[in-house]
């Protein structure tokens, strides 16, 4: 049985009708067609599905959709503003921080949550903040460099 779900995603209000046994990940991808958020392991392990809920990075594959009601969600689609990439996105490009790119949306959202909490993190802080995000391609070093570079810049 479907139930109404109202929430804010990337600054826009949505009302959708969802089956309560759907996860936030499924609703974002299948109902809102925001397919930037990736479905990886579906078990909370890999981090590709990471989104920001009320300011905190969470795994959307482990959040039941009704738990998102009334909350403020940010996905990778919400990072760029007015056609301009977010400084983190630009840093990922500048530092070659992706290859296949499957982990990138999750990496970006974990990094965004981290920088919002701690604008100038150390390398250890970044490793800690990205601990729940796997990358099968890059070996992580470039990702670390990109986040540190974005963190070093004054952000407006």
């Amino acid at each position: 049985m479907k139930m109404p779900l109202q929430f804010r995603v990337n600054g826009e209000d949505y009302e959708v009708y969802v089956e309560p046994w759907k996860t936030l990940l499924e609703v974002l991808r299948d109902e809102l067609e925001l397919t930037g958020t990736k479905a990886g392991c579906l078990a909370g392990e890999c981090g590709t599905c990471t989104v920001i809920v009320d300011g905190k990075a969470v795994k959307s594959c482990l959040m039941l959709a009704p738990q998102a009601a009334g909350r403020e969600i940010m996905t990778v689609e919400g990072l760029a503003q007015g056609g301009k990439l977010h400084p983190l996105q630009q840093a990922f490009i500048d530092h070659f921080a992706f290859q296949c790119g499957f982990c990138t949306p999750g990496m970006l959202m974990s990094s965004k949550a981290l920088l919002d909490e701690n604008p100038h993190p150390t390398a250890d802080d970044v490793k800690e903040g990205l601990y729940g995000n796997f990358c099968r391609c890059t070996g992580y070093v470039k990702i670390l460099e990109a986040v540190l570079a974005a963190g070093a810049k004054p952000r407006g």
């Binding site: 909370g44 981090g47 990471t50 990075a57 969470v58 795994k59 959040m63 974990s110 949550a113 729940g132």
Partner: peptide, 9 residues
């Protein structure tokens, strides 16, 4: 315990 995202929720 796990990692940041799991601990957040």
């Amino acid at each position: 315990l796990a990692h940041r995202q799991v601990r957040n929720w």
